[in-house]
Design a binder for these strands. Structure first.
Lengths: 365, 365
DNA sequence: TTGTATGCGTTATCAC
DNA sequence: GTGATAACGCATACAA
């Protein structure tokens, strides 16, 4: 019914006995159009289910309705959630998502060059761009609408959506302190991740404020994935029980999974013998045994807000422009951020208390 | 360096002192171009890093370089892997992926209509289209290049990539039979999934050939997710031990996770007391405790082959056409299917034997 | 082999 | 308010 005849705006014009300019004006909701003509045109349009050719529209406008999303492999824990948020917002607009999923072996900067050079997308959302972020920076300088999600470098002037890693880590550590723990270990992520550094600082700050000296033995470094969590846990539990921490703040959930495994293998009761708290609140964390206490990162919300920010940069009017597409939908997500107009959006995290953490009680010998 | 001046083919023509037609011919590798001119043009092109505007190219060609991918939520277990395969092939072509990720609550057929009406994509890859498949069918009739991955309906004439669910289930069941099991339960998926039905038939066929009567009590139906697996497992283990199966063939890994949980809670040894085998080989299955024996579905390969098939439908020459883009890359995946020219590709599965399954030994009372 | 001219389907800029 | 008409950037039939 729809692909049959490739109707063009000219056909509609002829049928409605007006000029194509008028048809275009009707289609684009231009005010100055005789209501009678308007209706005559719309009737024909609807009768034939006419939709303007998007490519021609783009050529005439000098701008595509595509935004590129640069994403790490989709099987990374947080990516599907972020993409969910992206889709959620995109659906309320006339834009679509072009997915560039990167495998990390390759350096995709050449691909990036081509994409941008051919003007395929009118903006870019970069999720965890990592090594590409400096390359992206030069594009941003040249005027490319760009938003980064949770980048791994120091803060820049590039529009950004993420969380406050320092405060979140501080809060997580404080929670353990309030449970009575004093020997609190931290398994941090790789030092080249800015977030890992921030979380470390939050942890240290909390300890210092509680008057607890930092013990080098209680700080280990992993790779943000389960195997490294295992490794670090084994080191923590290598010596005699007296040296064990009573709580471990793990830099992310993935590593915490590894810690839980080691604890189970060694029959170390969680949380009785050792409390464990993660960071991220990945989908699986609620289903660990025991369910993992962790700092919740609102990944979906991050994707949503980042997309919203990007579209406001590309086309500030997109929200108000009457387009058929959004009459059908309305956003299901509320605006939880106050600083909508900022180009640096921090989304609040919150602690999710589950059973992997509990009050400290002196080691039973 | 690249976004500066919006060079057009006209600029290049002027600088090279040729007509824009010639520039176009050079860019598109037309044979009949004087090598001298060709080089002169290419020099200018490279010097200025010129890339043709993709929108204009598309308008002139009457065809976009976008393929739409209709996908279920990305956090469904197999989707990231499938998408990985899609990306892997797409990278070898000049096409890009527009991601339409569907949340299941909404009926997206109207969105689909718009997308196709505006001619944004030149082909569609539908992953588990489910309820949309009949709607898609009408588009296919009208000439839309379309490939489905693992659809949930009966086989149609629509190009398709998937596995042989019947044979795979048959093989899985036979494996249990060869381990000596005789009371083999099956937790099937929802009956409205064609694959669930096929797997059931494979299971039954294997039992029948072994001369084992089908016991209704040993057949349960879940929803393809963990909670339903739990529920079914609890039913199987509800009565006295004498009635328990010694092995369970679970319709997919997700449900098998639920079964493993129940077994652990009830201290039912796996595989000593009961062998468990899943279907799919999701990423997590290797990390279950115990690691799950399961029928491996090559999801990445499916995504790869489906994309390849689709691009051959859209543009049979795309493999040979000399494009800058693929000089940089070459496919890392071999062709494992023989029937490349068929429009119905079955990709072989294989059993992955891990520790959740073992030889039958009589119940120790 | 190369250049000219036209088409691709819209939008926007003019006159009217 | 409305209608010609010129962009938009490229591809290609046709002529040279």
């Amino acid at each position: 019914m729809i692909m049959q005849k490739k109707l063009t705006i000219n056909d509609i014009a002829r049928m409605a006995q007006v000029s194509k300019a008028t048809v275009s004006r009707v289609l684009n909701r231009h005010a100055s159009v005789d209501p009678v003509l308007r209706e005559r045109v719309m009737d024909i349009v609807q009768e034939h289910n006419f939709v303007p050719n998007v490519t021609a529209t783009e050529l005439a406008n000098g701008r595509t309705r595509l935004i590129g999303v640069l994403a790490p492999p989709l099987n990374w824990p947080a990516i599907p959630e972020i993409m969910h948020g992206v889709s959620e917002y995109i659906e309320t607009t006339p834009y679509e998502v072009v997915l560039y999923s990167m495998n990390l072996e390759r350096n995709h900067s050449d691909v990036l060059d081509r994409i941008l050079a051919m003007r395929m997308v009118s903006g870019l959302l970069a999720i965890l761009p990592g090594g590409l972020s400096s390359h992206l920076d030069t594009f941003f300088q040249q005027g490319l609408p760009l938003v980064m999600i949770d980048d791994q470098k120091e803060p820049t002037h590039i529009p950004w959506v993420g969380i406050d890693n320092f405060s979140s880590a501080y809060e997580a550590t404080n929670y353990l302190l309030q449970l009575g723990h004093r020997r609190i270990a931290h398994i941090m992520g790789p030092r080249h991740y800015y977030c890992a550094l921030q979380r470390l600082e939050g942890y240290q700050q909390a300890l210092l404020e509680a008057g607890i000296p930092l013990e080098p033995d209680l700080l280990l470094q992993g790779e943000f994935e389960p195997a490294s969590g295992r490794r670090c846990a084994e080191m923590l539990f290598a010596q005699d029980r007296g040296t064990w921490p009573s709580a471990i703040f793990v830099g992310n959930d993935q590593m915490a999974y590894g810690v839980l495994e080691v604890a189970e293998e060694r029959k170390i009761q969680v949380p009785e013998a050792v409390s464990i708290i993660g960071f991220d609140d990945n989908l699986l964390s609620a289903h660990m045994r025991p369910p993992l206490t962790t700092m919740h990162q609102p990944f979906m919300e991050m994707g949503y807000q980042a997309t919203k920010l990007l579209l406001n940069m590309i086309d500030p009017e997109h929200v108000h422009k009457p387009e058929q597409k959004w009459q059908a939908f309305s956003s299901s997500l509320p605006d939880t951020t106050k600083n909508d107009h900022s180009s640096r959006i921090q989304i609040p995290t919150h602690l999710v208390t589950r059973t992997s953490s509990g009050a400290f009680h002196p080691r039973l010998l």
